[in-house]
Every structure is written in structure tokens, then in C-alpha cells.
Design a binder for these strands. Structure first.
Lengths: 140, 140
DNA sequence: ATGTTATTCGTAGTAATATCGAATTATAAG
DNA sequence: CTTATAATTCGATATTACTACGAATAACAT
């Protein structure tokens, strides 16, 4: 899961109706649900639902398959877990104290503190080792 | 973390610049970074950065504090972990095989299949117990 | 053929987004 | 008090994207 895909997936879930639909599909598991049923439960007209399902589909969060007359949608657990993994690894401080979404018993030991991928020099209170974009004009 | 807050947080992260900024702040930990440095690193003008920081602030994902002349922004680990927890609990199938962002040893036993909060009757292959919204207009 | 299921199409409003320069506020230093 | 730094607010703009939904169309089964 790269950054672009994460943005796409996050955007797909960042909407009340779609999040509701996705949670519905998660409950259903691999079995999935036909579009009509989803529309009913979500309380949106079929054409509106299709719109939202396309967003989820395009983000790779759901899969689509035909079963006779119905189109069955199911949540793609692999992609969703990849998203959560991305967030956990890139947006949760990696070794930081607070254990993210996991039983405490899962963390027998934790990493030191914070310095996994230090961007600047070690002793750099406000990150002075940069000045690329703005400092250019200065003193004209 | 309720659904509305999750949507808000997801939306805040669903943008390339903001996700980049947030990751930057995560790297920095509680120490945080002043706005100017963030703007520099992200390669966006100060006024644009403020816009994005407001989004993150409003979603509760970052905190703001003043240090002399500078405004220091830092990622709020608690809120981020709450978001990940929400996603894990509501959008990852809870007991479903695939272990989400967590050591496999964390899942000693898993639930049967799917029916944690069944919205319809137990034996309901395609969820027939509904039809509230759509069927109303029909035949005009 | 007919009915069911879902998508596509067309439309419409509308709000929201992202961006950025210039002016303004807040703080510090001389 | 004046000057310099740091960041925000303001104003403007362009865009564009979203969400929603009815009507028409396609896919499929009986």
C-alpha cells in the first residue's frame, strides 16, 4: 500500500453513506450482499448507491461478482487490512508506547522511544537542516 | 470514536499534502514541528499550509501550541490510535481470519463467521427483511 | 415477452477544495 | 519604538468534485 492508494482508500471511506455501506459489507463477510439489499439498508436510491459503490470499487475496498441477476458486493479484507497496516506503520509512531488496536498481551517488548527514520540531525530542536523552498527570495 | 468523527478524521487524511504533513508530524513525535518548517518540508506556501493544518486540527488529529514566536503542531497519537481502533473493530471483520496490523499470536480464537450485530433475521441469505425506502414511490 | 436487478445517463445544485498573494496579528529583539 | 520574524486571516479564484436522484437502458431469468 503506497501513499497514493492510501489517500484513495481514505477518501472512499470518508463519507457517511459509504462508511455505512462498507461496515455493512464487513458484517456480511465474504458472502457479500446484492446491490439492491445494500440500497435498501442504507436508505438510498439504487442509482445513488451505484455511485458510492463505484467509489469503493475504484479504491479497491470492495469486490463485485455476479450471481444470476444480482451483483454481489463484498468487502475486500486484504485491502482494508493493508490500509490499517499502512496507517499503523506510517501514522501511529511505530514504536511509540500506545499499542494500536491490539491486545496488550501482544506487545511483550516495545522499542526505545522515537527515532525510526530521523529526518534531520539528532540534536535539532526545530529541524533547522532544511530551508529549501522559502528561504530563496530572502533579502532582495 | 463514533462514526461521524471517523468520517471527519478519514477526510482529513484523504489528501496527499495533509497525509504527508501528518506523517511528518508522526515522525517528530510529541515534540512536534513549527508551521514554517512544515511548510518548508511539504513544499507549500505558509497560507496554504495553514489551511491544511486547520483541517487536521478540526479533525482532532493534531494539536497546536505556541513556543515563543512559533506555533508548534504535533500529531495526536490518541486520536489516531482511536481511528485505527475504530477501523479495526468496525471495518476489519473483528474475528475474521486475517489478523489486522497485529502479531498473529494475538488471535487465539476467532468467532464463527458473520453475525455480530445481525440487522435482519438470522436465516436471511440476502437480507429480505427490509424494503422501506425504495418501494414507496414505484408506479407513478 | 415480462419482470427483476442494477447500471448508465443526464442534470442539478451546491458545497467544498485547493491554492496562493497580500494584509494583519503576535511575538521577540535591538 | 522600530524592525524583523512567524504565522494566520483575508480575499479571490478556479475548479472540480460531490452528492443525489429520476428516467432510460442493459443484463439476466422465467
Amino acid at each position: 500500500m503506497d501513499s497514493a492508494r492510501a489517500v484513495s482508500a481514505l477518501g472512499a471511506l470518508a463519507q457517511a453513506t459509504r462508511l455505512q455501506v462498507f461496515r455493512l459489507l464487513i458484517e456480511r463477510g465474504a458472502e457479500g450482499l446484492p446491490a439492491g439489499v445494500i440500497a435498501d439498508r442504507a436508505g438510498v436510491p439504487p442509482s445513488s448507491l451505484t455511485f458510492h459503490l463505484q467509489q469503493l470499487l475504484h479504491a479497491g475496498l470492495v469486490t463485485q461478482r455476479r450471481l444470476s441477476r444480482q451483483l454481489i458486493y463484498a468487502a475486500d479484507l486484504a485491502v482494508m487490512n493493508a490500509l490499517v497496516a499502512y496507517l499503523t506503520e506510517n501514522c501511529c509512531g511505530r514504536g511509540v508506547p500506545a499499542a494500536p488496536a491490539c491486545d496488550p498481551a501482544c506487545m511483550p517488548q516495545h522499542l526505545p522511544a522515537a527515532s525510526p527514520a530521523s529526518p534531520a540531525s539528532p540534536a535539532d530542536p526545530a529541524g533547522a537542516g532544511l530551508s529549501r523552498v522559502r528561504r530563496v527570495v530572502k533579502r532582495a
